[in-house]
Amino acid sequence: MKIFSYLLFLSAVLAAPLNELERRQSGPKGIDVSHFQGSISWNTIVNNGVKFVFIKATEGTTFTDPNFSNNYVGATNAGLTRGAYHFAHPDASSGATQANFFLAHGGGWTADGITLPGALDIEYNPSGAECYGLSASAMVSWIKDFSNTYHSKTGRYPIIYSTTDWWTTCTGNSAAFANDNPLWIAHYSSSIGTLPAGWSFATFWQYADSGPNPGDQDVFNGDAAGLGR
């Protein structure tokens, strides 16, 4: 009887579902980096199984990441799928102005199968009011201005990076972008959690701010072919 009970217990454990992070880890792994990571050994990262990377290019309209070019070339030469991201400062200038600044400093898109659409990093203000002094409606208008400008110049809508908490607080949990903009959600847990309104899934998930590779740790919701598409 004891052996039979143990076998029942063992079969239940083996049949237990994996948590969400473990399931998603079967998708392509990625990282996002900036000059804060310093010099990066891209070949080591590839050997660690990383398939894609987002690289900081710009912030507001006054900052260009000093390591962007080296990181972008290094990632390209190592065979990684790569893209750029822009850290937004909605209190500094219009969405269109910042989209154009991003496009002029590495944020463009090419249909070459290895370039990700540019990403708009819109999140907590590092040096002031959480929502940059904008109302929810004004924030939605700012994001639309950025997104539409980027789309008009590249034919692709930018990926939106944010957290559900910030999005709910600062856009009123707007569902206005879910049909066009891929979502890159930041949530450091074994579960992706509740997504912002309108999005039924996240295309990218930043699940940890540190790990075996430099920068934040990400995973793509799909397979290698989907990442290429």
Rank of each mutant, 00 (worst) to 15 (best):
Ser5Asp: 14
Leu7Asn: 10
Leu8Asn: 08
Leu14Val: 11
Ala16Gln: 06
Leu18Gln: 13
Arg24Ser: 06
Ile31Arg: 00
Val33Glu: 05
His35Arg: 06
Ile40Asp: 08
Asn43Thr: 13
Thr44Gly: 12
Val46Tyr: 07
Gly49Arg: 04
Val53Thr: 08
Phe54Cys: 00
Ile55Met: 02
Glu59Pro: 01
Phe63Tyr: 15
Asp65Met: 07
Asn67Gln: 13
Tyr72Pro: 05
Thr76Ile: 02
Asn77Glu: 12
Asn77Ser: 13
His86Trp: 04
His86Glu: 10
His89Lys: 14
Asp91Ala: 15
Asp91His: 10
Ala104Cys: 08
His105Gly: 03
His105Trp: 03
Gly106Phe: 05
Gly108Met: 11
Asp112Leu: 15
Gly113Asp: 10
Ile114Glu: 12
Ile114Asn: 14
Leu116Ala: 02
Pro126His: 09
Ser127Asp: 14
Ala129Lys: 14
Glu130Asp: 14
Cys131Pro: 06
Cys131Ala: 10
Tyr132Pro: 08
Gly133Lys: 10
Ala138Asn: 09
Ala138Met: 05
Ala138Pro: 01
Met139Glu: 10
Met139Ser: 15
Trp142Lys: 02
Tyr150Ala: 02
Lys153Ile: 15
Pro158Ile: 08
Ile159Glu: 01
Thr164Pro: 03
Asp165Ser: 15
Trp166Ala: 09
Thr168Arg: 14
Gly172Cys: 13
Ala178Met: 09
Asp180Glu: 13
Leu183Tyr: 10
Ser189Gly: 08
Ile192Thr: 11
Gly193Trp: 05
Leu195Gln: 07
Pro196Asn: 03
Ala197Tyr: 04
Ser200Arg: 14
Phe204Glu: 00
Phe204Lys: 02
Trp205Arg: 06
Trp205Lys: 05
Gly211Asp: 08
Gly215Leu: 12
Val219Phe: 13
Gly222Asn: 04
Asp223Gln: 06
Ala224Leu: 15
Ala225Gln: 11
Ala225Asp: 13
Leu227Ile: 02
Leu227Trp: 01
Gly228Leu: 07
Arg229Ile: 11
Arg229Asp: 09
